[in-house]
Design a protein around this nucleic acid. Sequence first.
DNA 1: CTGTTAGCGCATTCAC
DNA 2: GTGAATGCGCTAACAG
Lengths: 343, 343
Amino acid sequence: MSDRRVTLASVAAHVGVSAITVSRAMRSPEKVSPPLLEKIRKAVADLGYVPDPAARALASGRTDVIGVLVPSVTNNVFSDVLRGIYASVEAEPLEIQLGNTRYSPVMEETILRVFLSQKPAGLVVAGIDQSEASRRMLEAASCPVVQIMELGPDPIDMMIGFSHYDGAAAATRHLIETGSRHPAFVGARMDPRTQRRFAGFRDACEEAGLFSPARCITTPRPSTVTIGAELFADLIARHPEVDGVFCNNDDLALGILFEANRRRIAVPRDLTICGFNDLEMMAVAEPSITSVRTFRYDMGRQATELILGRIAGDRAAPAGPVDLGFALQPRQSTARGAHVAGD
Amino acid sequence: MSDRRVTLASVAAHVGVSAITVSRAMRSPEKVSPPLLEKIRKAVADLGYVPDPAARALASGRTDVIGVLVPSVTNNVFSDVLRGIYASVEAEPLEIQLGNTRYSPVMEETILRVFLSQKPAGLVVAGIDQSEASRRMLEAASCPVVQIMELGPDPIDMMIGFSHYDGAAAATRHLIETGSRHPAFVGARMDPRTQRRFAGFRDACEEAGLFSPARCITTPRPSTVTIGAELFADLIARHPEVDGVFCNNDDLALGILFEANRRRIAVPRDLTICGFNDLEMMAVAEPSITSVRTFRYDMGRQATELILGRIAGDRAAPAGPVDLGFALQPRQSTARGAHVAGD
DNA sequence: CTGTTAGCGCATTCAC
DNA sequence: GTGAATGCGCTAACAG
């Protein structure tokens, strides 16, 4: 049972049929007579036969692998997406192959090349900022491709996401509507999605004549709660007038909350804080923190389902990008109900 | 460039050598004369040749895949381990194949079977509570296997982890030493690792004659910050005497901190809180939270390195389990320096 | 250092 | 409904 000696041929011999019949019994049972099917199934179970995926891939030119390319496995945001992907694939005879690009387009290119060499059944890639080479590879790929997390003008194939710009702008307008006269921006890592959030913040501030680049503080380091606290300490030292902060994500927002608590700054009375993504802890924080809810789990789920649909030859697959929208969760003022955009 | 028509044979024809020579040039360049090697490399680049992993696996009976089996991809703890694994493999010609067991031994068995059918170069599995069948498969596996996250009496092959029992016991003793007379336990999910932490808590309490099962409150649901807050609300309603809480992890601890803040319970004066894992945010929380630091990233790194060593035929691989220890981070009392155990 | 021969385990295409 | 022949692309084992 150890050395994988059990092959299609050995099962076939055991039952007294040819290998191809066993192969068929496994892949299209309806093409094999019921009694034979039964015997074959028993033999497979008894002998502990497990198909060799390499041989299968070589012979058929296909695999049952869906490649997933994300920039991080640590980031909560992507792990939620992954959960959705795993959930939707659970009942299917498909595997997930995860690639970690570490926010590097070059790395993405390399991994993509490897993934494509495996003739995947589908590909899920995060973002719309692929390198030229990656884009060409994806366009030439003979499998369905879904870009997730964002929306953009020219999808490679399928696309499902939401507008980071709009989400940030909506949050910022809320910040201003609830009284912030000196809004600030705190951001970390500044990847493309973060940049678009910043643009949304900036434009919403400018609409109100309240934009100040000096109140925008960022770092290339990846965001953590600690960095949120540090950046806020910096910010408030230089700009004590700040009365509202939009953060590029919830980790930073939490750090700011802690730092504000430490400095006995009354939140939300003297400072309102808004995060992005609406991690579970935002609602239960004390005081709770306003955030922009994004539908990460659903994004993962639906991305895989788009691929499954395409594989099943479902022509009802959506023609254009799918906008999942976002939902502002106001928590530091008179609740005014969730604002749902997109979709 | 799309249909992967470029094969070893086409590169060989292009250069005017045989396929096997190209194959060797790619795998053991030292066995090919430098000028030829140069020409082959150029042809490979020009034609954009990428080896077919399925064909390679079928012919050689091996792959360059390290299978990693974890119970969750969302849990911070495992994502840190994954980061370590990815980091140590980055420079190697190895891929990571991730399996998500969802805390189910049955699922683990299924995935294991799939993984083994791919003839992996190595296997990393979380925990020591594999099913009988899983254990047999792993013992029969012809590749190096590393169990991570825990230590136990009979390793399948290699093992690297720490004692959850000892970590919890040390934390609990600290809780008691710093004045808790009515210590409580709050736990969620109650997987095997959590159970061992609970045992450590219980025994340390009993040592001091302070154990009370009524003050131990748990839920089978996965732990979240919200659940931490809820369980604490329950606990304190029924046992207002509670003056110290050991939590099975940091999420719960954070939820308790928030709930305590909400109820104006002075932390740490009237309530001391201790988490487990020491997530980054524990130190920056207000007030900061005591926790048991675990070396998750290192665990991932070293697990992979053990496998790499074994693959390289390194007989210097450790004979027994590797204890990475833990480090209590006391933050809610007079700091008394980190207590490092194990190792 | 390079080439020849053979075959990995399975699915495709065509027969029956 | 079942089977025979053939080859997927690569590498192992041996020659030279």
